[in-house]
Design a binder for these strands. Structure first.
Length: 269
DNA sequence: TTCCAGGCGTATC
DNA sequence: GATACGCATGGA
């Protein structure tokens, strides 16, 4: 990764990075593409407009070097060498094809609470509707509400989200965390299996949502969320389990495969 | 109209 | 532990 400071903001040079793939592959739900092709979104209290200048150059509009080094470099996981991951996956035919197709995906380092809340909303739901619900949530609170804010709400008062049966799960998560019954900070430092069990104490959090929180909100690259798409992938390509070359990087493999089969549905037949 | 979507809680065996 | 079913909502 290399970068330089310009009058317009930071220009980053990095391979294995594609904004459309990374921001629109179902790991984050509140980035939007502007008419000029740039992506616009928020992380914590920071707003960003970022555009892809070429296959490996990116402009972070109006961003200072301090904000880049302190926030965005980490968020986009720019210090991680994804080409090394892709090289490892070359041992497996399907995985190497998926990795080549989805080689611009990076696993974002998102906020654990936002990730938890977002993937509670994601269950038995589709991506456009997930974005709609989260959009209404952020509009209401002028940004993603923290857990202490949502702990004041009830499933009934959250009806405006039109989140259906998930509203009571959001309430449960917010209240358990606000009361310190569950600590996302502690979970961050726990071994992955223990962290998963702890997350699953929240009502509405099962293995899949827990693994999404671990992968997208705590950067546990070995977490392996299995949704309806991945179930089909496993049945079709890996009836005996994931290949050895994916060990420790199951989450990265999962994201490549997820994007690959969603964009190439005929591969599952 | 029916089916499905980045699942999970509950009941039942 | 495995399996079946209901669940809110909205687009296809």
């Amino acid at each position: 990764m290399d970068y330089r400071v310009t009058d317009n903001g930071i220009i980053v040079s990095q391979n294995c990075f594609d904004l459309a793939q990374t921001l629109d592959c179902g790991q984050a739900f509140r980035w939007s593409r502007r008419p000029d092709g740039a992506f616009e979104g928020d992380f914590l209290n920071e707003h960003l407009v970022i555009s892809q200048q070429s296959s490996d150059e990116f402009l972070l509009h109006g961003v200072s070097e301090e904000k880049f080094l302190g926030v965005w470099k980490d968020y986009f996981d720019l210090d991680t060498d994804y080409s090394a991951f892709i090289e490892r996956f070359s041992d497996d035919e399907t995985l190497s094809q998926a990795a080549e197709f989805a080689s611009g995906i990076r696993i974002l380092r998102q906020d654990p609470w936002e990730t938890l809340c977002s993937f509670i909303i994601s269950q038995n739901n589709n991506i456009p509707r997930i974005k709609g619900i989260i959009g209404r949530l952020c509009e209401k609170y002028s940004g993603f509400p923290d857990y202490s804010t949502l702990a004041e709400e009830t499933a009934e008062s959250l009806a405006f989200l039109r989140a259906g049966f998930r509203a009571k799960y959001i309430e449960d998560a917010a209240k358990r965390i606000a009361s310190h019954e569950i600590s996302l900070e502690k979970i961050k430092s726990m071994p992955t299996d223990d962290a998963r069990k702890e997350l699953m104490h929240i009502c509405g959090v099962g293995p899949k949502v827990a693994d999404c929180v671990l992968l997208f909100g705590m950067h546990r690259l070995e977490a392996f969320p299995v949704d309806v798409w991945m179930k089909k992938v496993m049945e079709r390509f890996y009836p005996d389990g994931m290949p050895e070359c994916a060990k420790g990087l199951e989450g990265v493999a999962q994201q490549y495969l997820f994007h690959y089969v969603r964009c190439n549905r005929e591969k599952l037949i």
